[in-house]
Computed example of a mutant assay.
Amino acid sequence: MKTRTRIAVITAAGIVTVGAFAGTFALASNSPTMFGPGPGPGPGAMTMPRGGPRDGGCLAIPGIADPSGTLTEAQRSGLAANAEEEKLAHDLYAEFANRYDVRIFDRIAASETSHLEAVRTLLSRYGITDPTADQAPGHFTTPAVQATYDRLLAQGAASQDAALQVGKTVETTDISLLRESLNSLTAPDVQRVYGNLLTASQHHLAAFDRWSSR
């Protein structure tokens, strides 16, 4: 894992990095069995909910069967930052679902709720303070995350197309960070969650692409 840490901050103009994000970052997941044991097909494999990933619908059970491992301080910080990023994605998509009559936002927002629960399970397992605890929708502990949310919300409020573009930006950024985070991660439970979240984030991006092309 790279020693330099970072947190991704997305603005209307693009993506910059500030602060201290520990490189362990997760987003979307699709499967009712995504947190089960074992690699590859079987109990630990991703399974698509009814209707498939076309509209971004994802359901997940936050139970994590894999054993815990060892996290560096950077990875512990990144897990806490990840919780805020999961909440950011959820709160954005939920707000866009209220504004626009397109089911993709409702479905992905629902999946983000399950993803945040999974990350919170990891936070509890590793004794890490949850920065999203008791935070109202649209409110964040970290100023950089709050600023990112405010910018993206304003960008997506311009139009439905702009909101879909925000979704694509969020998912593209998440995919990049997840790939980087998985490079040196050794804790089996965190590996399982992050790996499946990476796959699901790719599904979400594909869904946003389909809606943007309509």
Rank of each mutant, 00 (worst) to 15 (best):
102 V>L: 15
102 V>W: 13
103 R>Y: 08
103 R>L: 12
104 I>P: 13
104 I>D: 13
105 F>E: 13
105 F>G: 13
105 F>Q: 10
106 D>A: 14
106 D>K: 14
107 R>P: 01
107 R>D: 15
108 I>V: 15
108 I>R: 04
109 A>N: 06
109 A>M: 07
110 A>P: 03
110 A>G: 15
110 A>E: 12
111 S>D: 10
111 S>H: 06
111 S>F: 06
111 S>G: 15
114 S>F: 10
114 S>P: 04
114 S>W: 11
115 H>G: 04
115 H>M: 02
115 H>V: 11
116 L>A: 07
116 L>E: 11
117 E>A: 15
117 E>D: 14
118 A>H: 00
119 V>D: 06
119 V>N: 04
120 R>E: 14
120 R>K: 14
120 R>G: 05
121 T>I: 06
121 T>D: 08
123 L>E: 02
124 S>D: 10
124 S>N: 12
124 S>I: 07
124 S>F: 06
125 R>A: 15
125 R>D: 05
125 R>C: 01
126 Y>A: 08
126 Y>H: 09
127 G>V: 09
127 G>R: 10
127 G>S: 08
129 T>D: 11
129 T>P: 01
130 D>G: 00
130 D>Y: 04
130 D>R: 07
132 T>N: 04
133 A>T: 08
133 A>Q: 13
133 A>I: 04
133 A>C: 00
133 A>W: 08
134 D>K: 02
134 D>F: 06
134 D>E: 12
134 D>Q: 09
135 Q>W: 09
135 Q>I: 01
135 Q>G: 03
138 G>M: 01
138 G>H: 03
139 H>D: 07
141 T>M: 07
141 T>F: 00
141 T>S: 13
142 T>D: 14
142 T>R: 11
142 T>L: 03
143 P>G: 10
143 P>W: 11
143 P>I: 06
145 V>W: 08
145 V>R: 04
146 Q>H: 07
146 Q>I: 03
146 Q>W: 12
